[in-house]
């Protein structure tokens, strides 16, 4: 009985689509790291979560970052495991990437490099967009 009530409660919960937009380089400001923290918190609430990386945000996903000597956390590796937290898509803007001399091979795994039209459509279908 108790379980049934719980199920009912679950099914009436509103699931919203959340998009995290990463536009800044990883170590110049705290924004991208904070964005990642918020994703990890949001993942506990069973919402539909995706992320877009554009402008300098694409640098967050660059392979080979070694930050020990500047005394900050290296968090690009955490983006790789977001799928296990139910984050469905990590979209990367193709032009932002190529403008910075990079290709998908320069990035951590598990991302989707897409054109701006794809990102525009992703943005359009969101309930909430959070910029970092």
């Amino acid at each position: 009985m108790g379980e049934e009530q719980y199920d009912e409660e679950q099914s009436t919960e509103v699931q919203k689509k959340f998009l995290f937009v990463f536009k800044r380089a990883p170590h110049g400001t705290i924004y991208p790291y904070e964005g990642l923290e918020v994703i990890l918190i949001m993942a506990a609430y069973d919402q539909v979560i995706s992320a877009v990386f554009t402008d300098d945000g694409v640098y967050c996903l660059k392979k080979g970052q070694e930050t020990a000597a500047i005394g900050v956390k290296e968090f690009s590796i955490t983006f790789k495991v977001l799928e296990q937290y139910g984050v469905e898509h990590l979209y990367v803007d193709k032009e932002a990437l190529s403008a910075r001399g990079m290709t998908e091979a320069d990035l951590v795994t598990g991302v989707e490099v897409v054109d701006k039209e794809t990102i525009a459509n992703v943005i359009r279908e969101q309930d909430v967009v959070l910029p970092f």
Partner: peptide, 15 residues
């Protein structure tokens, strides 16, 4: 800042 330019890349007609 590049905000306005990058915003203009993603706006769709009705936005």
């Amino acid at each position: 800042a590049g905000n306005l330019k990058s915003c203009l890349r993603y706006v769709t007609k009705e936005s």
